[in-house]
């Protein structure tokens, strides 16, 4: 889909730009108001969720609505271990436990396709939510848990690092033979199988990798919420937002996922605080407009602009 080849010169420039952005992001808490740091943390969280969702779902075209179960698992890992172990370790464990859960469900479900898979993953999320609710009420004798809170600057850095790692992983997978194999699964699964790709193993592995980042993100976000219960931790919203954000930004491109997560998070907050009574209506209308008029998402729009203005849009097609 890239219209120009990346020469070594451009690569260097791109790297330099990346480093500048990173330095900027890393020093941000020193001179920016705290609330913007908190907002950026939310954006990073959604970038992690969207990009990690897309690691699996974009190339294979298996739309997963199980994100909430992996994210929530991470939250509960923090709730249980947060007071005992340091943050990076708990975040790692959160990711691993979520991965494990994804492996198990992957074994069960990744033989399903299309609509069946979508429905199953959503059902799975709800199943996890209700079972943990049952567990909390009947075994723990409570509903919510207080969790150990962490300063918002630390949450910011943790999320920044995780977002960075997620992006590197997503980029590396796209560029590898592994990524190509995933794409071939999405395009024609039988053909991929006949070409000697172990499709089931590939799918399960990718599903688990994607779940790792969601779980880790959950473990970090739990520190901000300070009180959690199953309906907070496994909120169905978390399953739907990454899908919407990826579509909004443009599902084919990595930077589309970043753009979608960023723009939609900011948009949601502006709408929510400026128009509390029309929030849902406006949000829905904007999503509808993007899906109807921008089939390639924001990225499609930007690429047109990039290539020489919106006016000449027929020249390229």
């Amino acid at each position: 889909m890239h219209s120009f080849r990346v020469t070594s010169n451009k690569k260097a420039l791109f790297l330099a730009l990346l480093i500048v952005i990173l330095i900027f992001a890393a020093t941000m808490p020193l001179y920016i108001q705290p609330y913007i740091i908190i907002s950026l943390t939310s954006i990073f969280m959604y970038i992690v969720l969207t990009v990690s969702w897309a690691i699996f779902s974009a190339p294979t075209r298996y739309i997963s609505l199980a994100s909430a179960s992996f994210f929530g698992t991470g939250i509960y890992v923090w709730a249980i271990l947060g007071s005992a172990l340091p943050l990076p370790i708990v975040v790692g464990i959160g990711g691993l436990v979520s991965s494990l859960l994804a492996l198990l469900t992957g074994l069960l479900t990744l033989r399903l396709r299309g609509l069946y898979f979508i429905i199953f993953t959503f059902g799975f999320s709800e199943f996890v939510r209700h079972s943990s609710q049952w567990w909390e009420i009947n075994i723990s004798g409570t509903e919510g848990r207080w969790v150990v809170g962490v300063d918002h600057t630390i949450i910011y850095y943790a999320m920044l690092i995780l977002a960075f790692l997620t992006l590197i992983t997503a980029y590396a997978i796209r560029r590898s033979r592994f990524g190509l194999a995933l794409q071939s699964i999405g395009q024609f699964e039988e053909a991929a199988a006949h070409a000697g790709i172990n499709v089931t193993a590939m799918k399960i592995m990718t599903f688990a990798i994607s779940a790792f980042f969601m779980g880790a993100a959950g473990a970090i976000m739990a520190t901000r919420w300070s009180y959690i219960d199953p309906s907070i931790a496994f909120s169905p919203l978390i399953s739907f937002m990454p899908v919407l954000m990826a579509i909004f930004g443009g599902i084919g491109q990595l930077y589309g996922h970043i753009l979608g997560a960023g723009v939609l998070t900011i948009l949601a907050e502006v709408l929510l605080t400026e128009f509390p009574y029309y929030y849902m209506l406006l949000f829905g209308l904007i999503l509808l407009a993007v899906i109807l008029f921008l089939p390639h998402g924001l990225v499609g729009l930007m690429e047109k602009w990039w290539k020489g203005g919106l006016a000449g849009k027929h020249a390229n097609t």
Partner: peptide, 8 residues
Amino acid sequence: DIGTAVKL
């Protein structure tokens, strides 16, 4: 939504 409440 409790997450939204915390943020707001």
